[in-house]
Amino acid sequence: VEPFVCAQCRTDFTPHWKQEKNGKILCEQCMTSNQKKALKA
């Protein structure tokens, strides 16, 4: 199985991968920080 790479921070290690609607693969940490930024905006 090919390891995923986060589209935002380029890490290849995370407990959980998330896929955005646009198809980008993000690590759990980037997904969480993006959600917090969206709530602040």
Rank of each mutant, 00 (worst) to 15 (best):
K40H: 06
E28R: 02
K37S: 08
K21G: 12
K36P: 04
I25R: 05
K37Q: 13
W17H: 10
R10P: 14
Q19H: 06
T11Q: 14
K40A: 09
C6Y: 04
G23H: 14
K24Q: 12
K21P: 13
N22K: 11
E28T: 10
E20R: 02
H16T: 11
A41W: 10
Q8C: 15
K37R: 08
A38K: 11
C27G: 00
S33D: 10
T14K: 09
E20C: 13
L39N: 15
G23S: 07
H16D: 10
C27D: 01
T11G: 14
Q35S: 07
M31R: 05
C30W: 00
Q8N: 15
Q8V: 15
Q35Y: 12
T32S: 02
G23W: 02
Q35K: 06
C30P: 00
N22R: 13
C9L: 00
K24W: 03
S33R: 06
T11K: 14
N22A: 11
C6V: 00
A41T: 06
F13T: 10
I25V: 02
K21A: 10
S33I: 08
K36E: 07
K37I: 07
F4S: 05
W17I: 10
R10T: 15
C30A: 01
T32F: 06
T32W: 01
R10A: 15
K37Y: 06
E28G: 08
K18E: 12
E2Q: 03
P15Q: 06
L26Q: 07
S33E: 09
F4A: 12
E28L: 05
P15I: 05
P15W: 02
M31G: 10
M31H: 14
A38R: 05
K36R: 05
V5W: 02
V5R: 09
K18C: 10
Q29D: 07
C27A: 00
F13A: 12
D12F: 06
T14M: 01
K18A: 06
Q35F: 01
C9A: 01
A7D: 13
V1N: 05
F13I: 15
K40T: 11
K40N: 11
C27F: 03
L39T: 04
P3N: 14
C9K: 06
T14A: 05
S33Y: 13
K18I: 03
E2I: 02
C6G: 00
K24D: 05
A38L: 08
Q35D: 07
I25G: 03
K36I: 04
L26G: 03
A41C: 04
A7R: 11
E28D: 11
Q8M: 15
Q35G: 05
S33C: 07
K37M: 11
M31C: 01
K18G: 12
K37A: 10
S33W: 02
K40R: 14
D12M: 04
K36L: 02
C27R: 00
C6K: 02
K40E: 11
W17S: 12
K36G: 09
Q19C: 12
K40L: 01
S33L: 05
T32V: 06
K24A: 07
N34D: 12
E28C: 11
C27E: 02
T11M: 14
K37D: 04
C6P: 00
N22G: 14
F13L: 05
A38Y: 04
